[in-house]
Amino acid sequence: MPNLGAPELIIIAIIVIALFGWKKLPDMARSLGRSARVFKSEVDEMKKDGKSPSEASQTTVAGDVVDGDAPRRAADAEAEARSAEARAQEAETRAAQARADADRFRSDPSL
């Protein structure tokens, strides 16, 4: 990277002033300072690595833990219940058919 001397810095300053204007420069500098302060505090917090929770983590809304597999498991359980009902209905139909066959056999033993 080339060395930035006084002439280069003056040219950069003139370009910045031309692009943004005199009135917006203090606001931009203030905003940049705030952003740097927040960034520095977050980096310091990450360095502590969980020793004390950050203010941001304490002010966020606490939420319930969502189980991502719950809808799939519920759908699987519902499908299994429908399958069990179908099997029970089929078994009931077979039992009714067996009773009807037994009744016919009793009434006409020649069958």
Rank of each mutant, 00 (worst) to 15 (best):
K24S: 06
L9D: 00
Q58V: 09
A88I: 02
A13V: 02
A98Y: 03
D67C: 05
A70R: 11
V65C: 09
K24G: 01
G5Y: 05
R94D: 04
A100Q: 06
G50W: 06
D76S: 05
A13I: 01
A56K: 15
A100R: 05
E90F: 02
A84K: 07
I15M: 12
I12P: 00
A98H: 01
A96H: 03
Q58E: 14
T60Y: 10
W22Q: 03
A81G: 01
S57E: 15
S110N: 12
A79G: 01
S31W: 11
V61N: 14
T60D: 15
R72C: 00
E8D: 11
K47T: 11
P109K: 01
E8T: 09
P7W: 01
I10N: 11
V38D: 13
G50R: 07
A62Q: 15
G33W: 05
A36L: 11
I17H: 09
P2V: 06
D49W: 12
R87P: 00
L25S: 04
A36K: 13
A81Y: 03
G68R: 10
A100P: 00
A6Q: 06
I11W: 02
R34V: 12
G68E: 13
A62L: 15
R99M: 03
D76P: 00
V61F: 12
R30W: 08
I10D: 11
R34M: 13
L19C: 08
G21V: 02
I17R: 14
A36W: 09
L4H: 03
L19Y: 06
R30V: 07
